[in-house]
Write a protein that binds this DNA or RNA. Structure first.
Lengths: 140, 140
DNA sequence: CGTGCGAATGAGAACCGTTATCGTTCTCGC
DNA sequence: GCGAGAACGATAACGGTTCTCATTCGCACG
Protein backbone atom coordinates (compact mmCIF):
# COMPACT_ATOMS: atom_id res chain seq x y z
CA UNK A 1 0.00 0.00 0.00
CA UNK A 2 2.01 2.88 -1.28
CA UNK A 3 -0.18 5.73 -0.07
CA UNK A 4 -3.65 6.27 1.31
CA UNK A 5 -6.30 7.13 -1.24
CA UNK A 6 -7.42 9.93 0.99
CA UNK A 7 -5.25 12.89 1.68
CA UNK A 8 -3.91 13.23 -1.81
CA UNK A 9 -4.81 16.87 -1.99
CA UNK A 10 -3.15 17.44 1.37
CA UNK A 11 -0.10 15.74 -0.07
CA UNK A 12 -0.05 18.24 -2.88
CA UNK A 13 -0.58 21.28 -0.71
CA UNK A 14 2.04 20.16 1.74
CA UNK A 15 4.46 20.31 -1.17
CA UNK A 16 3.31 23.71 -2.39
CA UNK A 17 1.51 22.32 -5.41
CA UNK A 18 -1.95 23.61 -6.14
CA UNK A 19 -4.42 20.75 -5.95
CA UNK A 20 -6.24 20.91 -9.25
CA UNK A 21 -8.66 18.24 -10.45
CA UNK A 22 -6.24 17.01 -13.10
CA UNK A 23 -3.36 16.68 -10.71
CA UNK A 24 -5.53 14.79 -8.30
CA UNK A 25 -6.56 12.42 -11.05
CA UNK A 26 -2.93 11.77 -11.94
CA UNK A 27 -2.00 11.29 -8.32
CA UNK A 28 -4.94 9.00 -7.69
CA UNK A 29 -3.98 6.86 -10.64
CA UNK A 30 -0.40 6.74 -9.38
CA UNK A 31 -1.65 5.66 -5.98
CA UNK A 32 -3.49 2.75 -7.59
CA UNK A 33 -0.27 1.37 -9.01
CA UNK A 34 1.68 -1.02 -6.86
CA UNK A 35 4.82 -0.81 -8.97
CA UNK A 36 5.90 1.85 -11.36
CA UNK A 37 4.39 3.22 -14.56
CA UNK A 38 5.46 5.20 -17.56
CA UNK A 39 3.82 8.51 -18.35
CA UNK A 40 2.14 6.99 -21.37
CA UNK A 41 0.72 4.07 -19.41
CA UNK A 42 -0.65 6.47 -16.84
CA UNK A 43 -2.19 8.60 -19.55
CA UNK A 44 -3.94 5.70 -21.24
CA UNK A 45 -5.29 4.48 -17.91
CA UNK A 46 -6.67 7.91 -17.24
CA UNK A 47 -8.32 7.85 -20.65
CA UNK A 48 -9.98 4.56 -19.78
CA UNK A 49 -11.43 6.20 -16.72
CA UNK A 50 -12.83 8.97 -18.89
CA UNK A 51 -10.42 11.55 -17.68
CA UNK A 52 -9.89 14.33 -20.15
CA UNK A 53 -6.29 14.76 -19.07
CA UNK A 54 -3.96 15.39 -21.97
CA UNK A 55 -0.61 13.71 -22.32
CA UNK A 56 1.18 17.02 -21.83
CA UNK A 57 -0.56 17.50 -18.51
CA UNK A 58 0.45 14.06 -17.37
CA UNK A 59 4.07 14.83 -18.21
CA UNK A 60 3.87 18.26 -16.61
CA UNK A 61 2.34 16.85 -13.45
CA UNK A 62 4.87 14.07 -13.17
CA UNK A 63 7.74 16.49 -13.68
CA UNK A 64 6.31 18.76 -11.02
CA UNK A 65 5.77 15.95 -8.57
CA UNK A 66 9.21 14.49 -9.05
CA UNK A 67 10.72 17.92 -8.59
CA UNK A 68 8.90 18.17 -5.28
CA UNK A 69 10.01 14.72 -4.27
CA UNK A 70 6.50 13.29 -4.23
CA UNK A 71 7.23 10.71 -6.89
CA UNK A 72 10.39 8.81 -7.69
CA UNK A 73 11.71 8.55 -11.20
CA UNK A 74 13.31 5.29 -12.23
CA UNK A 75 15.18 5.07 -15.51
CA UNK A 76 15.89 1.39 -15.55
CA UNK A 77 14.36 0.96 -18.99
CA UNK A 78 16.87 3.18 -20.73
CA UNK A 79 15.04 5.70 -22.85
CA UNK A 80 11.78 5.57 -20.96
CA UNK A 81 11.17 6.92 -17.49
CA UNK A 82 9.07 5.17 -14.88
CA UNK A 83 7.28 6.94 -12.07
CA UNK A 84 6.26 5.75 -8.66
CA UNK A 85 4.50 7.35 -5.73
CA UNK A 86 6.89 6.89 -2.84
CA UNK A 87 7.36 7.83 0.75
CA UNK A 88 9.00 11.10 1.66
CA UNK A 89 11.88 9.55 3.55
CA UNK A 90 15.15 8.44 2.04
CA UNK A 91 14.78 4.95 0.64
CA UNK A 92 15.96 2.61 -2.08
CA UNK A 93 14.33 0.23 -4.50
CA UNK A 94 14.18 -3.46 -5.03
CA UNK A 95 13.28 -4.49 -8.57
CA UNK A 96 12.10 -7.86 -9.80
CA UNK A 97 13.83 -8.52 -13.08
CA UNK A 98 11.04 -10.78 -14.23
CA UNK A 99 7.73 -9.14 -13.32
CA UNK A 100 9.14 -5.67 -12.75
CA UNK A 101 7.72 -5.44 -9.29
CA UNK A 102 9.08 -2.52 -7.31
CA UNK A 103 9.41 -2.49 -3.54
CA UNK A 104 10.70 0.28 -1.34
CA UNK A 105 13.55 -0.44 1.03
CA UNK A 106 12.98 1.85 3.96
CA UNK A 107 16.04 1.03 5.98
CA UNK A 108 19.22 2.39 4.54
CA UNK A 109 22.12 1.74 6.84
CA UNK A 110 24.57 2.74 4.19
CA UNK A 111 25.50 6.26 5.21
CA UNK A 112 28.76 5.27 6.81
CA UNK A 113 29.78 3.05 3.93
CA UNK A 114 28.85 5.77 1.45
CA UNK A 115 30.77 8.45 3.31
CA UNK A 116 33.83 6.24 3.58
CA UNK A 117 33.78 5.24 -0.07
CA UNK A 118 33.42 8.87 -1.09
CA UNK A 119 36.16 10.04 1.20
CA UNK A 120 38.54 7.48 -0.17
CA UNK A 121 38.37 9.26 -3.52
CA UNK A 122 38.35 12.77 -2.13
CA UNK A 123 34.62 13.21 -2.54
CA UNK A 124 32.04 14.43 -0.09
CA UNK A 125 28.84 12.48 -0.60
CA UNK A 126 25.60 14.42 -0.71
CA UNK A 127 23.31 11.68 -1.91
CA UNK A 128 23.26 8.13 -3.12
CA UNK A 129 21.04 5.79 -5.03
CA UNK A 130 20.86 2.05 -4.69
CA UNK A 131 18.91 -0.35 -6.84
CA UNK A 132 18.81 -4.01 -6.07
CA UNK A 133 17.74 -6.23 -8.92
CA UNK A 134 16.56 -9.73 -8.28
CA UNK A 135 13.61 -12.06 -8.22
CA UNK A 136 10.59 -11.44 -6.06
CA UNK A 137 8.89 -14.11 -3.99
CA UNK A 138 6.32 -14.85 -6.71
CA UNK A 139 8.85 -15.17 -9.51
CA UNK A 140 11.33 -17.42 -7.84
CA UNK B 1 43.51 5.96 -15.89
CA UNK B 2 40.59 3.85 -17.04
CA UNK B 3 42.44 1.63 -19.51
CA UNK B 4 45.79 1.47 -21.24
CA UNK B 5 45.97 2.99 -24.70
CA UNK B 6 47.60 -0.16 -25.92
CA UNK B 7 45.78 -3.41 -25.99
CA UNK B 8 42.47 -2.03 -27.14
CA UNK B 9 42.23 -4.52 -29.92
CA UNK B 10 43.02 -7.31 -27.49
CA UNK B 11 40.24 -5.95 -25.31
CA UNK B 12 37.84 -6.35 -28.21
CA UNK B 13 38.96 -9.80 -29.18
CA UNK B 14 38.87 -10.99 -25.63
CA UNK B 15 35.18 -10.11 -25.70
CA UNK B 16 34.49 -11.76 -29.04
CA UNK B 17 34.18 -8.50 -30.91
CA UNK B 18 35.96 -8.17 -34.21
CA UNK B 19 38.52 -5.41 -33.99
CA UNK B 20 37.71 -3.18 -36.93
CA UNK B 21 39.33 0.23 -37.50
CA UNK B 22 36.11 2.04 -36.63
CA UNK B 23 35.61 0.19 -33.40
CA UNK B 24 39.17 0.87 -32.42
CA UNK B 25 38.67 4.55 -33.08
CA UNK B 26 35.59 4.60 -30.91
CA UNK B 27 37.33 2.67 -28.18
CA UNK B 28 40.41 4.87 -28.36
CA UNK B 29 38.28 7.96 -28.03
CA UNK B 30 36.48 6.41 -25.06
CA UNK B 31 39.82 5.64 -23.47
CA UNK B 32 40.81 9.30 -23.75
CA UNK B 33 37.85 10.36 -21.67
CA UNK B 34 38.33 10.47 -17.93
CA UNK B 35 34.64 10.71 -17.16
CA UNK B 36 31.70 9.72 -19.26
CA UNK B 37 30.44 10.83 -22.65
CA UNK B 38 27.30 10.71 -24.68
CA UNK B 39 27.25 9.00 -28.04
CA UNK B 40 26.89 12.35 -29.76
CA UNK B 41 29.83 13.87 -27.95
CA UNK B 42 31.95 10.92 -28.90
CA UNK B 43 30.88 11.20 -32.51
CA UNK B 44 31.71 14.88 -32.77
CA UNK B 45 35.11 14.29 -31.20
CA UNK B 46 35.79 11.60 -33.72
CA UNK B 47 34.82 14.01 -36.46
CA UNK B 48 37.30 16.53 -35.12
CA UNK B 49 39.96 13.89 -35.43
CA UNK B 50 39.00 13.34 -39.05
CA UNK B 51 37.44 10.01 -38.42
CA UNK B 52 34.85 9.09 -41.00
CA UNK B 53 32.81 7.20 -38.43
CA UNK B 54 29.10 7.71 -38.82
CA UNK B 55 26.78 8.35 -35.93
CA UNK B 56 25.06 5.05 -36.47
CA UNK B 57 28.35 3.22 -36.14
CA UNK B 58 29.10 5.02 -32.91
CA UNK B 59 25.74 3.93 -31.52
CA UNK B 60 26.16 0.41 -32.83
CA UNK B 61 29.61 0.12 -31.35
CA UNK B 62 28.56 1.48 -27.98
CA UNK B 63 25.59 -0.86 -27.87
CA UNK B 64 27.84 -3.79 -28.71
CA UNK B 65 30.44 -2.84 -26.14
CA UNK B 66 27.91 -2.32 -23.38
CA UNK B 67 26.36 -5.65 -24.19
CA UNK B 68 29.76 -7.26 -23.80
CA UNK B 69 30.35 -5.43 -20.56
CA UNK B 70 33.27 -3.42 -21.89
CA UNK B 71 31.59 -0.08 -21.30
CA UNK B 72 29.21 1.05 -18.61
CA UNK B 73 26.03 2.89 -19.42
CA UNK B 74 24.94 5.62 -17.04
CA UNK B 75 21.52 7.17 -17.39
CA UNK B 76 21.82 9.90 -14.83
CA UNK B 77 20.85 12.57 -17.32
CA UNK B 78 17.39 11.18 -17.90
CA UNK B 79 16.78 10.83 -21.59
CA UNK B 80 20.40 10.74 -22.63
CA UNK B 81 22.79 7.88 -22.05
CA UNK B 82 26.38 8.32 -21.00
CA UNK B 83 29.08 5.77 -21.73
CA UNK B 84 32.28 5.03 -19.93
CA UNK B 85 35.10 2.57 -20.46
CA UNK B 86 35.28 0.69 -17.19
CA UNK B 87 37.02 -2.24 -15.61
CA UNK B 88 35.63 -5.71 -15.98
CA UNK B 89 35.06 -6.34 -12.31
CA UNK B 90 31.94 -5.44 -10.37
CA UNK B 91 32.14 -1.82 -9.30
CA UNK B 92 30.10 1.27 -8.59
CA UNK B 93 30.32 4.94 -9.49
CA UNK B 94 30.97 8.16 -7.72
CA UNK B 95 29.60 11.22 -9.49
CA UNK B 96 30.48 14.84 -8.91
CA UNK B 97 27.27 16.81 -9.08
CA UNK B 98 29.10 19.92 -10.17
CA UNK B 99 31.71 18.96 -12.76
CA UNK B 100 30.21 15.55 -13.57
CA UNK B 101 33.41 13.76 -12.85
CA UNK B 102 33.00 10.00 -12.66
CA UNK B 103 35.17 7.74 -10.55
CA UNK B 104 34.99 3.99 -10.21
CA UNK B 105 34.59 2.48 -6.77
CA UNK B 106 36.35 -0.84 -6.95
CA UNK B 107 35.60 -2.12 -3.50
CA UNK B 108 32.02 -3.17 -3.00
CA UNK B 109 31.53 -4.70 0.39
CA UNK B 110 27.80 -4.56 0.02
CA UNK B 111 26.90 -8.10 -0.89
CA UNK B 112 25.79 -9.05 2.59
CA UNK B 113 23.77 -5.92 3.06
CA UNK B 114 22.18 -6.38 -0.36
CA UNK B 115 21.32 -10.00 0.27
CA UNK B 116 19.80 -9.15 3.64
CA UNK B 117 17.75 -6.26 2.33
CA UNK B 118 16.46 -8.41 -0.51
CA UNK B 119 15.64 -11.31 1.75
CA UNK B 120 13.66 -9.09 4.05
CA UNK B 121 11.20 -8.51 1.22
CA UNK B 122 11.22 -12.04 -0.09
CA UNK B 123 13.58 -11.26 -2.95
CA UNK B 124 16.71 -12.99 -4.06
CA UNK B 125 19.21 -10.42 -5.26
CA UNK B 126 21.01 -11.09 -8.51
CA UNK B 127 22.60 -7.71 -9.02
CA UNK B 128 22.75 -4.23 -7.63
CA UNK B 129 23.75 -0.76 -8.67
CA UNK B 130 25.00 2.01 -6.46
CA UNK B 131 25.63 5.60 -7.41
CA UNK B 132 27.08 8.02 -4.96
CA UNK B 133 26.55 11.67 -5.81
CA UNK B 134 28.67 14.33 -4.20
CA UNK B 135 31.40 16.86 -4.73
CA UNK B 136 34.84 15.89 -5.93
CA UNK B 137 38.03 17.20 -4.41
CA UNK B 138 38.33 19.98 -7.00
CA UNK B 139 34.78 21.21 -6.63
CA UNK B 140 34.57 21.38 -2.90
C1' DC C 1 -22.68 37.41 -7.92
C1' DG C 2 -19.70 39.56 -12.03
C1' DT C 3 -14.87 40.49 -13.28
C1' DG C 4 -10.10 40.04 -14.21
C1' DC C 5 -5.72 37.96 -14.11
C1' DG C 6 -2.49 34.45 -13.74
C1' DA C 7 -2.09 29.51 -13.54
C1' DA C 8 -3.38 25.27 -15.65
C1' DT C 9 -4.84 22.66 -19.52
C1' DG C 10 -5.47 20.11 -24.25
C1' DA C 11 -4.20 19.36 -28.89
C1' DG C 12 -0.82 18.90 -31.73
C1' DA C 13 3.58 20.37 -33.56
C1' DA C 14 8.38 20.32 -32.64
C1' DC C 15 12.42 18.31 -30.66
C1' DC C 16 16.01 15.15 -30.02
C1' DG C 17 18.24 10.91 -28.86
C1' DT C 18 18.22 6.55 -30.76
C1' DT C 19 17.33 2.79 -34.08
C1' DA C 20 16.24 0.81 -38.60
C1' DT C 21 16.98 0.67 -43.61
C1' DC C 22 19.58 -0.01 -47.51
C1' DG C 23 23.06 0.20 -50.76
C1' DT C 24 28.10 0.15 -50.57
C1' DT C 25 32.53 -1.11 -48.69
C1' DC C 26 35.53 -3.77 -46.12
C1' DT C 27 37.49 -8.12 -43.99
C1' DC C 28 39.24 -12.43 -44.06
C1' DG C 29 39.46 -17.31 -45.16
C1' DC C 30 40.28 -19.74 -49.26
C1' DG D 1 42.40 -12.36 -56.44
C1' DC D 2 37.58 -13.93 -54.96
C1' DG D 3 33.39 -14.49 -52.66
C1' DA D 4 30.42 -14.49 -48.55
C1' DG D 5 29.23 -12.24 -44.73
C1' DA D 6 30.08 -8.58 -41.50
C1' DA D 7 30.59 -3.70 -40.94
C1' DC D 8 29.77 0.83 -42.42
C1' DG D 9 27.73 5.73 -43.70
C1' DA D 10 23.96 8.50 -44.88
C1' DT D 11 19.65 9.35 -43.93
C1' DA D 12 14.94 8.26 -42.91
C1' DA D 13 12.01 6.66 -39.35
C1' DC D 14 10.70 6.10 -34.63
C1' DG D 15 9.21 7.12 -29.98
C1' DG D 16 9.36 9.47 -25.77
C1' DT D 17 9.29 14.03 -24.08
C1' DT D 18 8.83 19.01 -24.30
C1' DC D 19 7.13 23.24 -26.36
C1' DT D 20 3.59 26.40 -28.27
C1' DC D 21 -0.43 28.67 -28.13
C1' DA D 22 -5.13 29.45 -27.79
C1' DT D 23 -8.64 28.31 -24.39
C1' DT D 24 -10.40 27.35 -19.90
C1' DC D 25 -10.25 27.35 -15.07
C1' DG D 26 -9.61 28.88 -10.17
C1' DC D 27 -9.67 32.27 -7.08
C1' DA D 28 -9.23 36.88 -4.96
C1' DC D 29 -11.36 41.15 -5.13
C1' DG D 30 -14.92 44.41 -5.84
Amino acid sequence: MPAPRQGLSELLERNAVRATPRRLEVLEELARERDDVTAQQLWSRLRERDSAAGLATVYRTLALLSEKGVVDVLSHHGGEQCYRLCGDAHHHHLLCERCHRVVEIQECGLDDWVAAAAKQHGFVATDHRVEIVGLCADCR
